[in-house]
C-alpha cells in the first residue's frame, strides 16, 4: 500500500473492479444513492478507508485486494467488550 495522506472513509460508488468514470468525474459527482447493495453472488461495493496496521497509518481500497479471499469484519467499536 503506497504511503499517502490519510483520506476519508468513502464508498467508491460502484462494485470492486469496475470503472466508475474518470477521477475528475468522481470528484465532482457524489456516489449514487445506494440501498441494499449487498447480495450474495454479486460484486462487493468498493470503498477506500484510512486505517492502522502494524505501527503505520495506511489507506486501503477494497479493490486492491482483488485476487484474494477477504473477510471484512464490521464491529461496534474499539474498547467494547465482546
Amino acid at each position: 500500500m503506497a504511503e499517502e495522506a490519510a483520506g476519508c472513509a468513502r464508498p467508491i460508488g460502484g462494485p470492486v473492479g469496475e470503472e466508475t468514470g474518470s477521477s475528475v468525474d468522481s470528484k465532482l459527482k457524489k456516489p449514487p444513492e445506494v440501498h441494499a447493495m449487498i447480495k450474495v453472488g454479486r460484486k462487493a461495493p468498493d470503498f477506500a478507508a484510512p486505517g492502522y496496521h502494524k505501527g503505520e497509518f495506511i489507506n486501503v481500497k477494497l479493490s486492491d485486494y482483488l485476487g484474494k479471499w477477504i473477510v471484512l469484519c464490521f464491529y461496534p467499536g474499539d474498547f467494547t467488550f465482546v
Partner: peptide, 11 residues
C-alpha cells in the same frame, strides 16, 4: 457484520 468476498470481488 462479516462479509466473505472471493478473489473476483463477489460477496
Amino acid at each position: 457484520g462479516r462479509f466473505l468476498i472471493d478473489p473476483d470481488g463477489i460477496v
